[in-house]
Every structure is written in C-alpha cells, then in structure tokens.
C-alpha cells in the first residue's frame, strides 16, 4: 500500500474527444455563456445581490478556468455594480484567475503537512524543470500550477498534488515530474476535475 501514486479520484471522465481537440489557450470567454450562468443568480434585494457576486464569479471561474475583464463587466452589469469593484474581488481572492489556464491544471499543496514532508523541493523543482512558479503557465500552454497555501486534506499522503482529476501522493521531485509528463501525454484536461461548486442563488441553492 505504500506506493499508491497515482491514486485516482472521482468518476472516470466521460470520453468526449472534441473537448480535448484544442491545445491552445482559450483567450476569449463566451459572454453569452456567462450570461446564461448569471441567469441562475436571481436576487430579491440589494443585500442578496452583493452576497451573490462572489458565488457567481466562482462559478464562472470554475467553468472557464478564469475570468476575463469582459466577463467581469458582464457580472458587474448583472448585479448593478462597477467593473472595478468586481475586478477588485478577482485580484484579492486567491482562487480566481485573470488569465486563461493551460490545458492541465495542478494544485500543488504547500500546507504544513506537505511542507514538513518536503513540498518546498517540489515548488523549486517546478521552477527549475518546468519554469513555472505559483500561478504560472508553461510556455507551451500545457500546464498551469497553483500552489495551495491551505491544506488539501490528504495529509497522510503528503506531499501531494492534484493534477486535473488525479491525486499523486508521497511525492518526490522525480515522482512529480513523472506524473506531469504522464498527464501531458494523456488525453485529459483540467476540465476532468470540473467539480462545480453547486452555487446559484438562494432559491435554487
């Protein structure tokens, strides 16, 4: 049981070839789709509108992998506020991205269990071997990494990362590199991990 990496989470992704067809970053967000997401966010009064802005941004961020300035303007219009206010939220909260994600997305845990078990070396390895630091994307658009300051909650297998839908535990820099290469060679993408936060407004909770 020692060497269980990769341990694979969640239901197996449904094969849908068209999802993996484009290797390029999606630089545009379809604003019609944003409006469709927003149509689930009804609000009855001013307070509820304010409370739902963050939830709406989260859903958009999960759906597209990031939130563009244009999308932020649409959100602002929906909730009757300014785009600068919405953009201020995007830059304050660590989960939001204001740039597109690469094809694969990694959450590298740098919580305390992972730190005491050596995640510092993994962070350094990403810079040395893959040329990316927290929030960065490789030049070929294959991999985006987010270093997580919190804890992924699987501390018994620290240090650990989540690559698309898969978790890889008990990592060393070598194991991490193998995992990344395997993921890039595979057909998956960050969308496999799409784990929608079931948000929506209070009514459809």
């Amino acid at each position: 049981m020692e060497d269980v990496a990769p341990t694979i989470a969640g239901p197996d992704p449904e094969p849908s070839p068209e999802r993996y067809s484009d290797n390029n970053l999606e630089n545009e967000i379809d604003l019609e789709e944003v409006r469709k997401i927003l149509s689930h966010f009804h609000y009855r009064d001013f307070q509820e509108a304010q409370e739902l802005i963050l939830s709406a941004l989260q859903e958009i961020n999960e759906h597209f992998g990031w939130v563009s300035f244009d999308a932020a303007e649409v959100v602002a219009a929906h909730f009757g506020t300014t785009a600068t206010r919405v953009y201020g939220l995007l830059t304050f909260y660590a989960d939001f991205r204001t740039e597109p994600r690469g094809r694969h997305f990694m959450l590298l845990c740098h919580g305390m269990a992972c730190y005491v078990m050596g995640s510092q070396r993994l962070v350094e390895n990403l810079e040395d071997v893959w040329g990316i630091a927290d929030g960065g994307t490789t030049a070929d658009g294959e991999l985006t990494v987010q270093v997580v300051n919190g804890c992924l909650g699987v501390c018994d297998r620290a240090p650990i990362c989540k690559l698309d839908a898969d978790f890889f535990g008990d990592l060393t820099p070598e194991k991490l590199n193998v995992a990344i290469r395997g993921t890039i060679a595979g057909r998956g993408s960050w969308r496999d991990a799409h784990h929608p936060v079931p948000a929506g407004s209070n009514h459809d909770r």
Binding site: L57, Y93, D95, N202
Partner: peptide, 12 residues
C-alpha cells in the same frame, strides 16, 4: 429562520 450558504475564495 432562513439559512444561506456562502463560499469563500481562498484568502486565509
């Protein structure tokens, strides 16, 4: 009593 669920955005 009304219950509302709100979610954070990853800021400690």
């Amino acid at each position: 009593v009304e219950i509302r669920v709100r979610t954070g955005g990853g800021a400690y």
